[in-house]
Design a protein around this nucleic acid. Structure first.
Length: 573
DNA sequence: GCCGTTTTCGGCCCGACTGTTTTCAGTCG
């Protein structure tokens, strides 16, 4: 987990430099480097081990100085500059800037004038009325800060994509009824289908902007209005999610949609590219001098910059501009490419529908096949089956096989701490597809955990490693594993990797997918459904695969039935 | 602090809204 650790340190340095009032471009350099590292699909540790400082400097946004800091972190465990900055302010100080509406300037003022260096002290100062004496801070500002503190205390962080999708749909429905609107589209990280969503951005085209922004602020879903202008409104919704609404003219739709879809890093890269061509890009269009040359559609905006259309899921400044320039953009996998689900549970273990009901729902979705993969004995909490029960289930499946959808006999076996499986080989042999997963002892060392998974992959019956990192978004960190090594051995043994589509998992994540594709490992996009309602989560898995640049050819369950079986049985030979 | 078919120095994305201001700084996305 060196990457996220270093990214966090760089972000903290940038925040502390901001407090210090450092050169804004230096601050941005740290932020840019942090983002770049977050999106990296290789371990910095590995990169450094193999190529030293020189290899680190090839990462975009990393130069001499930052490469040395990465080296310092890897070899000594810390970064001196980071430590010095933290010492200079107090550890609780950075969190002041997390309060919405309170930025570095105000934080510094509070510190200098009143020695406020934590949220606790700030609350005290507000109560005593002390901070109203400071220059530039009056009633309104104090009110905003108080509201910001409350909000921060209530906020659960980022929202799952499933929840954001629901709320966006609700807002869109309300706005549609409000009057003269032409288009309403959720933009922002939701349109890019990020695994978590910080806030909603909704874009509306209308000639009557003020009517829309005013009506939005009055919606019953809104609990507090943060800002309300003629073309933009911001509000906190009843579930504590922030929602920003922007209204633009139809002629500006493409440029606005592109800009509000982001990511910020992508938008910056686009604007930089425009500058080198003597153009200017803003949310109103592409301009040559004063003249607007594009903006009605996104295709027009990209076209004006000599780029092919870049799908929203790729817009993270992870090489998509170069790919669009060179005609090397991937043809991303689509929902329609998925021919079946290879990880589903029934009421034989912890699912709530029968095998027949699950199969019928799969057929309803147009699937060609579906694997029933109930738990094995060790996962007792999930009604895991004994070997005997499992064999009985397999014969039940045999009988159902003529229902218009191919049902594959499957099982989700446990990878025990020593790397062995809890079903014996002669039992596994009866399944068409064997999924192996870890459900216990999550806190083993990186070395032991990696070994545990590698030895499972060595078994010739194991086809797929399910939810490979075990993370639960907002709940449980991924376990420590050497992903690069796991992919290497997966390629060697002919083992596939799951992309679990559950919105709390999305595991593999987007950058792992890209890494897997580089190793030429097929990814199986599964839902891990425990009832028929769960099957629809496949959309989030496909989105994540798209964010990971996966094409149809990279996805195991885009294969037709015969091709799939061939792949599954290949390893047993 | 990064980076280079304008550059190894001198640039670095761009605009909306708020609050405290008589012309703009701060914050945000």
């Amino acid at each position: 987990m060196e990457n996220s650790e270093i990214a966090r340190i760089f972000l903290e340095i940038s925040e502390l430099l901001e407090l210090k009032g450092e050169n804004t471009f230096k601050i941005r350099a740290y932020q840019k480097a942090a983002r770049s590292i977050e999106g990296l699909s290789l371990d910095l540790d590995q990169v450094y081990k193999e190529g030293g400082i020189k290899a680190l400097k090839e990462i975009p946004g990393i130069g001499e100085s930052l490469a040395e800091k990465i080296e310092e972190k890897i070899t000594t465990g810390k970064v001196k500059k980071h430590q010095q900055l933290i010492r200079r302010f107090s550890p609780g100080f950075i969190e002041l800037m997390d309060i919405p509406g309170l930025g570095p300037k105000t934080a510094m003022k509070l510190f200098k004038e009143e020695k406020i260096n934590s949220i606790a002290k700030l609350k005290k100062a507000i109560k005593s009325g002390k901070i109203k004496d400071l220059p530039g801070i009056k009633d309104k500002k104090v009110q905003n800060i108080s509201a910001g503190i409350k909000l921060k205390e209530k906020a659960k962080g980022r929202f799952l994509i499933s929840e954001a999708t629901e709320y966006a749909a609700a807002i869109v429905k309300k706005l549609e009824k409000m009057g003269p609107v032409k288009k309403i589209v959720p933009a922002g990280s939701l349109r890019r289908q990020k695994e978590t969503i910080g806030d909603l951005d909704i874009l509306v085209t209308s000639e009557k902007a003020e009517k829309i922004t005013a009506g939005f602020a009055d919606l019953a879903l809104v609990s507090r209005v943060l800002a309300k202008g003629p073309t933009r409104s911001s509000a906190i919704l009843k579930n504590n999610m922030q929602c920003d609404l922007r209204v633009v003219k139809p002629s500006e739709y493409g440029a606005a949609l592109h800009y509000f879809t982001g990511s910020q890093q992508h938008a910056i890269a686009i604007r930089q590219l425009a500058r080198t061509m003597g153009l200017k890009v803003s949310e109103y269009g592409v301009f040559k001098g004063k003249k607007r040359i594009a903006g009605r559609t996104e295709e027009e905006v990209f076209g004006a910059l000599g780029l092919k259309y870049i799908p929203p899921e790729l817009r993270e400044n992870r090489g998509e501009l170069e790919a669009a320039q060179n005609g090397k953009l991937p043809i991303l996998v689509e929902l329609e490419d998925i021919r079946g689900d290879l990880h589903c549970h029934s009421d034989r273990s912890d699912g709530s529908n029968t095998i027949a009901e699950m199969a019928a729902a799969g057929r309803e979705m147009g699937y060609e096949y579906m694997a029933i993969t109930d738990h094995s004995v060790s996962t007792r909490i999930a009604g895991g089956q004994t070997e005997k029960e499992f064999l009985k289930e397999m014969s039940a499946i045999e009988k159902l096989r003529t229902k218009g959808i191919k049902i594959l006999k499957g099982v989700e076996v446990d990878i025990l701490p020593d790397g062995s499986l809890d079903f014996r080989d002669f039992v596994l042999k009866e399944a068409d597809v064997v999924i192996a997963a870890i459900h216990s002892r999550f806190k083993m060392s990186k070395k032991d955990m990696t070994k545990r998974i590698l030895s499972a992959m060595d078994n010739k019956y194991v086809n797929i490693i399910a939810h490979p990192t075990g993370r639960l978004i907002n709940e449980r960190a991924p376990y420590e594993i050497d992903m690069e090594e796991i992919f290497r051995v997966a390629a060697q043994t002919g083992t596939f990797m799951e992309l679990n589509s559950h919105p709390s998992r999305l595991d593999l994540n987007d950058t792992h997918c890209r890494q897997a594709a580089r190793h030429k490992i097929l990814v199986s996009i599964n839902t891990d459904s425990h009832n028929i309602g769960g099957l629809a989560n496949i959309r989030f898995g496909v989105s994540t695969a798209r964010r990971g640049w996966l094409e149809k050819k990279d996805v195991l369950n885009s294969l037709p039935y015969a091709g799939l079986l061939k792949k599954l049985y290949q390893k047993r030979r």
